[in-house]
Design a protein around this nucleic acid. Structure first.
Lengths: 366, 366
DNA sequence: TAGGGTCCTGTAAGCGCTTACCGGTAAGCG
DNA sequence: CGCTTACCGGTAAGCGCTTACAGGACCCTA
């Protein structure tokens, strides 16, 4: 096999210079819009560039400029096994990535994407190699341990998503606390529901634990009753939500007036299980979700939930990284406001949904 | 604002060499596993690398090696406007990309992603700049005109997806012709349906035109009746499929025994419209889809369709590109086999579905 | 006409890495 | 004991680009 070394036909700035009858410096200046070249020089360079359809080599520019104009994004890849059912739960990753990508285009950056499997041993090694090809890294939720983060952060700036800042890295997240708080208040204060429960997500998720904490605090503050315990532990999936409700019902437990689900997926499962037993939502039991996935509005009844600005989250992550790459030393943590989206599954009448889903902004930007 | 020029703390191979008390050549050799360094030299280098947590700069390596170990992927981005409803139809893009990414990891490559909006004027400019940062490009369906392709292909190797090869570029696609052929035969030969129709996709899609052509040829060959005309023009979306069926019904048209839909989305819409009029599937009208999206199996009745190996399509695209990058001069077109997935919407009994969805491979690899 | 600006353009250094080439050292052999 | 051979490791060139610096051409003024 022939050596993969330099492709034969690679054009360089020298070829352009020769053809235009100028020096490489002039070519470079024209291409970068620097200096004040004579109109004629400019045109000759442009003409040569066009005729040869010359494109500057990115690595050479990067080496010379000390700027690659590339950021890396690292995210989880679902195993093949759970592809079918769990796919939807990975969807939000793509939405966030889209946000990163769109924003980076505005700055002339490109995005290097790398997924890591759940059981990927040498992820760290791959990531460090990848870091060497970028100006900065965006790490999705819980991609790396704290020491892993410190390691890559010593190579390039790092911003994590939905985590927390470390001495070396920055973080961007949504203000889920406020979202949960608004949700619970809506149920126990606005609707006067006196008994509620939190159908949780995976127990090992810090996000889930934070939500549970807020939930409990708010319910207690309002003096409402609360059902808790292992019977209420879900896992963020629809199947998990359905299983929890089904087994509660099988055990003869009296359901609370309202169930706050850890995610929309969970809510979908719960609603499904309730429907099977003929229990009406929201008349008998109110249900709420979290995330506002696209189908949430099309459920019967339409799901009351909390919308996280995923695309904006990605955009913000890039923005923060970008300013850091440029040497600015901004906030180490950004918190984006979330929005309580009131539809009908909480017991609100249909007319209310449109109104409330607009205005009611909840949260703060930090 | 401080110059974005060279970050202060950047470690280089010189730092490692100094710390290890060897020359940069030795460091490089150890890092690349070349030559036969003495064990002691090796260890000292490795120790220094580890202590400094040194990572080689990607651009410098790329410049020196003539190989960036990066491929670019370009795909359509939905406008914000049609995000909600059309999102699902963009899903397959992410599946393909996942295939590209996974395969490229195996070769130590990373993937540079760039989306282009529908109305993006200077897409070509962005893409050429991006090409300069990569060793090769994968272009999703109809991203660029033929001249656009020629332009970028003069910079780096290019493989297109679901298109056709050009003198400068390669192509990877699924054998939809065979899929359509198998589907139509299943309906007119196995089921003996004597009247059929093709509910088309967007008229400007070559893919759609090819499917229509095969459809007509097969139906004619089997001597069955065929309904055609503008009334049968859909647009790949569920709404489009529903609209076509509804207006047909409104016009009092007698529906054919079977309707072949251009996509699963279309089939979903069509089935919805039929259900609203109380027309039973498959007893009154058989319906088939195309694509085998994840929900297809969960519809009522489960949808008979043609599965395209999306992930594999991506993987193959990378593979082809990779060997081309390495100078190999392989096939300019790869055609992947598709699979007829027989479920119940065609009129087959439930039991048949499992069996047929396994074995029946249709198509050839070219 | 000489001196001093202004503009523009070219020369060359250097970005961090790989690697061809060469020189030094040690081992093997007559 | 001197010379060949093998083996390592260092020096330096070069990848394609940007840009500091310097030089040339031209115009203006005294």
């Amino acid at each position: 096999m022939p050596e993969p070394k330099k492709a034969k036909g690679t054009l360089t700035i020298y070829d352009v210079a020769t053809r235009a009858g100028v020096s490489i410096a002039s070519v470079s200046r024209v291409l970068n819009g620097l200096g004040t070249p004579r109109a004629e020089t400019r045109e000759r360079v442009l003409k040569a560039v066009h005729e040869l359809s010359f494109v500057r080599d990115g690595s050479a520019r990067a080496l010379s400029n000390g700027l690659k104009e590339v950021v890396g994004v690292v995210f989880r890849r679902g195993d093949e096994a759970l592809f079918e059912d769990e796919y939807e739960s990975f969807l939000y990753i793509d939405v966030i990535n889209r946000g990163i990508e769109t924003e980076s285009q505005r700055r002339g950056f490109d995005v290097l994407m790398s997924s890591v499997a759940f059981n990927d041993e040498n992820a760290l090694q791959r990531l460090t190699a990848m870091a060497g090809k970028t100006d900065g890294l965006v790490l999705h939720d819980r991609m790396l341990s704290a020491v892993g983060i410190a390691r890559v952060a010593s190579i390039v700036p790092v911003v994590t998503l939905a985590g927390s800042p470390t001495p070396e890295s920055m973080n961007v997240r949504c203000d889920n606390e406020s979202g949960m708080r608004a949700l619970v208040r809506h149920l126990v204060v606005d609707h006067h529901y006196r008994s509620v429960a939190y159908l949780s997500g995976r127990g090992d998720s810090p996000d889930n634990r934070a939500r549970a904490r807020i939930f409990e605090a708010e319910v207690a503050a309002a003096g409402a009753d609360m059902q808790t315990g292992p019977a209420w532990h879900g896992n963020y999936s629809a199947a998990g939500g359905a299983a929890v409700v089904a087994s509660l019902l099988d055990a003869g437990t009296a359901l609370p007036r309202a169930i706050v689900c850890a995610s929309d997926q969970t809510a979908i499962g719960a609603m499904h299980a309730l429907a099977q037993r003929g229990i009406r939502v929201p008349q008998d039991v109110a249900i709420t979700g979290f995330d506002d996935v696209p189908v949430a509005r099309h459920l019967r009844p339409p799901l009351t939930t909390v919308r996280q600005p995923m695309q904006e989250l990605g955009a913000k992550a890039f923005e923060v990284l970008y300013s850091r790459i440029n040497g600015a030393d901004g906030a180490r943590e950004i918190v984006l406001p979330v929005q309580l989206v009131v539809r009908e599954s909480c017991g609100c009448p249909r007319s209310a949904s449109t109104v409330a889903s607009r205005g009611s902004l909840v949260g703060k930007e930090g």
